[in-house]
Design a protein around this nucleic acid. Structure first.
Lengths: 245, 245
DNA sequence: AACCGCAGTTCCATTTTATGGAACGACTCG
DNA sequence: CGAGTCGTTCCATAAAATGGAACTGCGGTT
């Protein structure tokens, strides 16, 4: 096992609800001899992949890591375009918006735009959600073929339900969820892809259920749809389905 | 030289205006044999530190890196508190806000809040700026002692100027710049620290020069100052100087 | 104080990886 | 086609990572 893999495993530990790591945390989580863990963290510190918090033995991701999320966003034309659309929609409706990507059966937000309304959904970038349990995830899954979804969710209890939901998403051109992941919160999501790079992102607006009626929802769908359609046209995303409300 | 160092060097290449890297880019930038570069990028790909863009040979930071900036923010109480203050100020005044940290003679934004005004400064998170040439940087440098600043900027042409500016910042309790880094853009910044962890952050608002008069500026300083003072009190930052306008 | 347990670091012989020069395959362009 | 660029693979050598054990430093107990 190369050091790089071990270093990556350490970084992965930060993913969930683990804001910092000590040598013994790493020993426990990765089952590695503590001599190794100690040297690994030291090497990662020296490479600026980690830094200690204060003068304690707790580690968090280092400065080097801080810039990389930004570099990721800059590297993708698609994310840049999508961000413009969602930023515009977010500030005009006052609700919080996201750009997300799918990674297997999970989705992660890569960019977020805080809403301006007093009552708004607080965004938490970098948290992974199950793709089949969120509008944004389903908008991305709907871009796969039936067979790909079957392969991905083989043996998964939610497959039958999911298949139905996805065909609805494919027909409508957008995904919608009402109080699904979070009580009181609704979400709309539209996916668009760059055929050149084969990457797909989801444009998503989340809002308090109580604040938006069907008409308001349709306006937001229309706004996202206009932006997404423009992106799809410019990048040549032939699989894009213009949302029908 | 360990792989980890080399991997870190590769990641550092993404810092500035380099959204993606190929094997030969790495050879050129780091002066490494191309056999090495090829294997290194491959290993980093397998560790999810990098991913290829589409099916080309260009690489960008991988999914693993995407979550780490968020983990960094979560690991710091200080950044969380500062974000609340700047988010509130940003949305109430409509201007763009930042949270920044200093790293030697540079500052980096760790969080940003897009303004809502039609004319606003677009935020670019993850870009490093020289600390002595920005309000946010000077607000952080002002927290150092004279001797530390001298040591840091020994032999630097701007030291004399900087010393003057910093004593002004220390006296005022905030840093201000008018059209310094970007024409037409002014900035105000206030630094606050967590004595427990020895980390300091700068709360910063940037705005179009033409849009804000002295009165408006003072209102924003007051808003930031209130939030920063609260944080300083809660965390026990005894070096904090309440801004006097 | 002396003792203990715990977290982290250092030591060292052994095993595993990384290194870099060169040869090789894939592709583009004139 | 032939030259040029780019990336990958091969191989002997050099440089690492490894893990068990010994060691250090720091509270908290008797």
């Amino acid at each position: 096992m190369s050091v790089l893999q071990n270093a990556a495993d350490v970084l992965r530990c930060f993913g969930n609800d683990c804001p910092d790591l000590t040598v013994s945390d790493v020993v426990r989580l990765l089952g590695m001899p503590k001599a190794n863990a100690s040297r690994l963290l030291k090497a990662m510190r020296e490479a600026n992949m980690l830094e200690t918090i204060g003068d304690s033995h707790r580690h968090r991701p280092g400065r080097l890591m801080l810039d990389l999320a930004a570099a990721y966003r800059r590297s993708s034309m698609l994310i840049g375009r999508a961000s413009e659309v969602v930023a515009e929609a977010s500030s005009s409706f006052g609700h919080t918006g996201y750009i997300s990507v799918r990674d297997g059966k999970e989705v992660t937000a890569v960019a977020d735009f805080q809403g301006t309304n007093a009552l708004r959904v607080v965004s938490n970038i970098g948290r992974r959600l199950p793709a089949h349990l969120s509008a944004t995830g389903r908008s991305l899954l709907a871009r796969l073929g039936e067979d790909e979804v079957h392969a991905l969710y083989a043996g998964h209890g939610a497959l039958a339900d999911l298949t139905d939901q996805l065909s609805k998403v494919r027909h409508q051109g957008f995904a919608y969820s009402s109080q699904e992941a979070t009580p009181g919160v609704d979400a709309i999501a539209i996916a668009v892809a760059d055929p050149r790079t084969d990457e797909a992102v989801s444009l998503c607006i989340v809002y308090p259920h109580a604040l938006v009626d069907d008409k308001g929802r349709d306006e937001m769908i229309a706004a996202l749809a206009r932006g997404a359609a423009r992106i799809a046209e410019d990048l040549g995303d032939s699989a894009f389905v213009a949302p029908r409300i």
